[in-house]
C-alpha cells in the first residue's frame, strides 16, 4: 500500500515538473497582451552597430511577413520621417562598420540622433537582437546598453541573452523582454506586435 502511494507520488511529481517545464516553454516567446498589435505602421528598420543581422530582419519583415517596412542599415534621422515604429537591430560588426565607412563611435552618434528623432516624434521603438553569442561582446554591448533603455520592447533570439545581460538591462529600465528560440520566431513576435492593417 505504502509502495503504491510512493509510486503515485512519484508520477504526480514528474507530471508537475513536466507541467512547469511546459509553462516555461510557453512563456518563452510570449508577447505581453498589452503590447500585442500596439505598434503602428509604417515601420522602419535600421541597425545599431552595422550588423548584417539588420538585412536578415528586413528580409524576415518584408519578404516573409510582407510588413513593408522601410530599411536603411545606416539610416539618418531624416530617413525615419513619417515612420511610427522604429526597429533597431542590435550588434556591432567591424566588417559592417568598415563597409559603411563608420567607426563604432560614429555609428553610436548616428543611432543616438535617430533615437532622438524618434522620441521627438513619438515613434515607438522595438529593439531586436538576432545574432546570438556571435553578436555579443564589448562593442555590441555598447550599442545594446544605448538602445535597450529607450525601447518599448526588446526581442532577443536564444544565445544572445545567455549571460542575462538583456534581462538585467530590461529589468533596470522596466522594458518588456521577449526571448525566442529562433529568428523565424522573432519574426512571429514582430508580426504580433504590429497592429493589423
Amino acid at each position: 500500500m505504502v509502495r503504491k502511494h510512493r509510486f503515485v507520488a512519484r508520477v504526480l511529481s514528474v507530471a508537475l515538473m513536466a507541467g512547469i517545464g511546459v509553462l516555461q516553454v510557453c512563456a518563452q516567446g510570449t508577447v505581453p497582451p498589452s503590447l500585442q498589435g500596439s505598434f503602428l505602421q509604417p515601420g522602419y528598420i535600421t541597425s545599431a552597430g552595422q550588423t548584417s543581422d539588420a538585412a536578415i530582419v528586413k528580409v524576415l519583415a518584408n519578404t516573409r511577413l510582407k510588413l513593408g517596412f522601410g530599411y536603411d542599415i545606416a539610416a539618418k534621422p531624416q530617413s525615419i520621417a513619417g515612420a511610427k515604429t522604429l526597429v533597431l537591430v542590435l550588434g556591432a560588426s567591424n566588417k559592417g562598420l568598415g563597409a559603411a565607412g563608420l567607426s563604432l563611435e560614429q555609428d553610436i552618434e548616428r543611432v543616438k540622433s535617430v533615437i532622438a528623432e524618434a522620441q521627438k516624434n513619438g515613434v515607438r521603438i522595438i529593439s531586436m537582437h538576432t545574432g546570438g553569442t556571435a553578436r555579443r561582446g564589448e562593442a555590441s554591448n555598447q550599442v545594446i546598453e544605448l538602445c535597450v533603455p529607450v525601447s518599448d520592447v526588446v526581442v532577443v533570439v536564444e544565445g544572445g541573452n545567455n549571460d542575462g545581460f538583456f534581462t538585467d538591462l530590461c529589468e533596470k529600465a522596466g522594458v518588456p523582454l521577449v526571448e525566442v528560440a529562433s529568428i523565424s520566431a522573432a519574426g512571429n513576435v514582430l508580426k504580433s506586435l504590429m497592429a493589423q492593417q
Binding site: 548584417s52 538585412a55 536578415i56 528586413k58 528580409v59 524576415l60 519578404t63 516573409r64 529562433s182 529568428i183 523565424s184 519574426g187
Partner: peptide, 12 residues
C-alpha cells in the same frame, strides 16, 4: 545579401 539573408532564415 538579401538572397543570403532569406537562405539563413530558411536554414535555421
Amino acid at each position: 545579401l538579401d538572397l543570403a539573408a532569406l537562405a539563413v532564415i530558411n536554414l535555421e
